[in-house]
Structure formats: C-alpha cells, structure tokens
Amino acid sequence: MATRRIWVWTDLSGGMPHRLSLELLVPARALGSAEAVLLRPASSDAVSALGEYGAAVVYHGDDAAYDEYIADPQATTLAALIESEQPDVILFPSTFAARDVQARLVGKLGVGVIANATGIEYDGDELRVTVPYGAETVASVTVEGGGPAIVQMRPKSFTADAVGGSAEVRPVSMPVDSSTCRVKVLENVEQSAEGPNLEEASIIVSGGRGIGKAENFALLEALAHQLGGAVGASRAVVDAGWIPYSHQVGQTGKTVKPDLYIACGISGAIQHIAGMGGSKRIIAINSDPEAPIFEHADLGIVGDAQVVVPKLTEALSKL
C-alpha cells in the first residue's frame, strides 16, 4: 500500500510556524508522510522549522495576496493543490485563520469535516477520529464518500516534537485569482497580554465572578506571579469587562492543559470545563460546596476565594 499523505495546514505566529501547526506534525508522521502546506510569505527560517518538527515536504506558496486578503485565495490554491496531489488527510489547527480556510475548502470540495478532534488513527483503511462531546461523552467518527478527510484538531492534543529533520521544499507558484481577493486586511493591531502566555504556562490561576470585582484580579495576579504562572478567567468576568478576552478559558476562549489549574470563584460551567478539563491537576476554591467545579477538582476548598487567595500567596512567599 502506498504511504498515506497527511497534510498539515500551517498558520504563522510572529513569522514562525504556529505552535498548534507544529503539534499536528506529530500525528501526521505517525499516520504516513507528514507534509506541511504553508501559503503565506515566510522566511527560510520558518520553512526550515517545519522540517525540524518533522515535515518531510513543505509546499510553500508566498504570494503577498495570502497576507493581504483573508481565506479565499488560500482556500482556492489549496483546493487546486489537493486536486493534483490527492492527499489522504488534511489536518488543521484550531486557529482563527485556519477555520476560515478550512470551512471554505469544505464548501468547495463538498466533503466531510470533523472538528474539535483530540485523536486520529487508521483502523485498516478506515480513518477513526476521536471527538469529545461535552465533558463526559467521546465519539469515534469517520468520513465517507472519497476526497481527503478534513480534520481540525483541538490544541494540545499532541506535543510538538523537534525531531531535527529537514524538509524538501516544493514551491507553489500558482497565480492567485484576483476574484478571490475579496476580504482585504486594512490594519493589524497587536494587543499583547502581560506575563507568561496562557497556553504555554504550566500553572494557571483563574478567576470567575466569585472573586467579587475587577480590582480583585490583582490578588490572582499576585498568586500567579508567586507561582510563575499565568492568569486565566471565566467568560462571565470577561463579559463584565474585568479582564481582556485574551485571558478567557473555555469553549469560546482558550484551551489550556497546564500541570496545575487553580479555579477561584468559578462555578465550573460545561463551557468553562471544555477549555481546562484536561489540566493535570485542579484546585478549586469556591464558597458553594455544591459548585460543579468540585467534580473536576483534585483538591476542593469550600471557602471565600477573596480570603484564601491572598493568604496562600503570603504563605508561599514565606517558604
């Protein structure tokens, strides 16, 4: 049987391959030939990083239109590439840009798409993709009817691995059709969050409505600082404007899997658990002994987070 060709659609972050794309080279290598597709102007460092993380081949298209216009030009080129190269699977990371390209591609090809996957394997000839539904149900899903399988993986389903290879670069020089240049980027604004990156932190101190008021986030920041961690938040407090959206953890925020997640005054709604349920250890501090968050905790403190958090910071500073 021919080697399966597994493509990884590559997003960029700060000019380098996005961490979530690098993660996907791990299952790609396990399933067959790992081939990255990068349709953005990028440096040779960015391209060689893909080889370093396990891509055997990098398809690189560097037309400026891929940067200047959203999704359409990329999806159009990708569809044409798929037609000529016939990959078996295309893996997409769960980044904003990926979703637009992926969804348009699905419309073009009329194929099946699986989103929110956490695992992927072949059972003989049948692709089997693991998709969690909510906190307690896991489905095994496949796609039928020919064409490549298009799968979006959740963050941190795999750990990126710098295996130290180098990729064969195949330039993609197909011209961009101007009729696909429809959504123009006028301006890019960076709003960087302070402290360690939420998705990379090994410890997260997260706050919900139970911390009382915006000013009390300073208590969580102090604890996070003491532990060398990052600050997260529930959607309720993001919506209330206590802290920017970039801190939101959950279904519509970030997915995190730290070694330790400390949930302070967070009730534990399903949509919040969706973003942090995979944390290795969870401490919950909540005044309501019935709060659902306790079902997910390793250590539950029934108490006032506004009292416990500063005391904890103080105790740790004396160690």
């Binding site: 796609v143 039928e144 079902e295 390793d298 403190i301 029934v302």
Partner: peptide
Amino acid sequence: REKVLAVEQVHQEKQVRTVVD
C-alpha cells in the same frame, strides 16, 4: 459524509479531597 462509529460515556470519577475553610 461524517459518520459516527461509536459513542462512549466516559465518567472520570475524580478523587476529590474537600477541605472546608
């Protein structure tokens, strides 16, 4: 084109240690 092959309930009973403050 998407077919669900199997669905499983996974209930992870965590060993919670609860402390009342």
